[in-house]
Design a protein around this nucleic acid. Structure first.
Lengths: 159, 159
DNA sequence: GTGGATGCAAAGAATTTGCAACCAA
DNA sequence: TTGGTTGCAAATTCTTTGCATCCAC
């Protein structure tokens, strides 16, 4: 039920990067060092990430925070990433190319993300469509405190 | 499957207000004019509202915006309201007392929100708990373009 | 060479907080 | 009376934007 090692990829990372670069080209966007770095960080993360966290996970000084915001906004428009706003109010982005539709379990303490390979909700989208809605999509995420964090007395960030 | 008129109330509005005031007292909070006004506006709304919108819907000058933020945060702690962050990044609060757990359909164009009275996901939380997570919760929302917006050539904000 | 992209800094928007005055219990 | 609340304003945090410079094509 839960993937531990390759949470959300059906393709190897290099292939996913290539696919993303291809989509960028198709849309007339340029392939720049910051963009490649952002995509690599996104793919490496294998799940939803906050922009700030993504930026910090990138090689020192390879890219400005403002650029991360701009690129992710551009990536979203052409379907490379998905943006959402979990419970904390800060934007979260997730790489979407080449992966199955799935959901996550996010630890409230350490923010660790695990993917779940089931989705029982798709059938429900039909009900929403029957209601007259078009382009229906959904978002489902689980939150909790992972066993590792639950054992620690202090809420230290330690996956 | 979809409630159109009373999205999330099993009780009449006055009863809901009384229940909320009772919860406030139980937790040692005071009943003030701003708080009653906020609760009334929340109950009248019968669904999720953005804080700014809620504030504007209240009687002229009855309460400061900062107070709305503070009260809603307090209400959330004692279970009177639920906070979430749909797609726009601004916080949304919803009155929850006397209502069932449920989810929403949000129109991507006009942001109209309708409530759905089912939740098939709760059973799945068990799977997450079995995985070792504690304090498990989930978030599920549907997005789409409502029939009214789908008919309009321009994406004007018109529910 | 040229227009799209980036870095830096400043602007905006949303939310939180400090503090003195206020009022519900 | 008294500590919880509020209003107002300043401070934070997150995100967007202006503009000169830079670089991918």
């Amino acid at each position: 039920m839960v993937h531990n090692h390759t949470p959300d990829s059906n393709q190897a990372p290099p292939a996913r990067l290539e696919e993303a670069l291809g989509v960028l080209r198709e849309h007339g966007h340029r392939i720049t060092r910051p963009r490649v770095a952002i995509l690599e960080a996104l793919i490496a993360r294998q799940g939803p990430v906050a922009i700030e966290v993504l930026h910090q996970s990138m090689p020192n000084g390879v890219c400005d925070l403002a650029t991360v915001y701009r690129c992710l906004a551009a990536f979203e428009k052409i379907g490379i990433v998905r943006r959402s706003y979990f419970s904390e109010g800060t934007a979260i982005y997730e790489f979407t190319l080449g992966g199955d539709h799935h959901h996550h379990i996010i630890c409230r303490e350490c923010q660790k993300v695990e993917a779940l390979d089931f989705c029982v909700v798709e059938g429900l989208e039909r009900l929403v469509r029957d209601r007259g809605y078009r382009d229906v999509s959904h978002m489902l995420e689980f939150f909790g405190v992972c066993s590792t964090c639950a054992e620690k007395p202090d809420p230290a960030k330690n996956p």
